[in-house]
Design a binder for these strands. Structure first.
Length: 137
DNA sequence: GCCAACGTTGGC
DNA sequence: GCCAACGTTGGC
């Protein structure tokens, strides 16, 4: 199983909205970046992902799971863009902030720090375990 | 709201 | 195929 991180502006699509969708999940559409798309194409059903609030919050607020493989993005006719669906799994008992991540040497290599603008990113097993621990899981 | 970083576009 | 211009993202 692989680990990922999805970024969303809470104004556009928040963790609460994601949770409201329940197990049905929701299409992670609107991605118009090749790197992010390529990562989504690599995802498998059951892969876990952090749900990060950008712009407002700046913290990892929950854990989601990939529940549909990469398919054409329904919000565009442009066939270049694919996306997966994700569903909320659980809240982070204690949200892990960007500030904390930046202050943690073991997490200095995270894409969140290194490639700030990438909206879908891979997370290593080590990073996953540590962030979960910091979040109280 | 500003602005730096960075990805994409398009003219040559 | 290069690179300048432009648009977008996202932290501050």
């Amino acid at each position: 199983m692989a680990y990922w991180l999805f970024k969303s502006e809470p104004n556009a699509w928040s963790w609460d909205q994601q949770k409201a969708k329940g197990d049905a999940g929701e299409e992670w559409d609107g991605i118009r970046n090749y790197q992010a798309r390529n990562f989504m194409r690599q995802m498998a059903i059951g892969d876990r992902a952090f749900f990060y609030h950008s712009n407002k919050g700046l913290e990892i607020v929950g854990i989601a799971e990939v529940c549909a493989l990469s398919h054409p993005d329904s919000t565009t006719d442009d066939e270049r863009w694919d996306c997966v669906n994700i569903k909320a799994v659980k809240d982070m008992p204690v949200p892990v902030t960007l500030k904390q991540i930046k202050a943690t040497p073991e997490l200095a290599e995270m894409s969140l720090v290194k490639s700030m603008r990438l909206s879908v990113q891979p997370v290593t097993a080590q990073e996953w375990a540590l962030v979960c621990k910091m979040g109280g899981l």
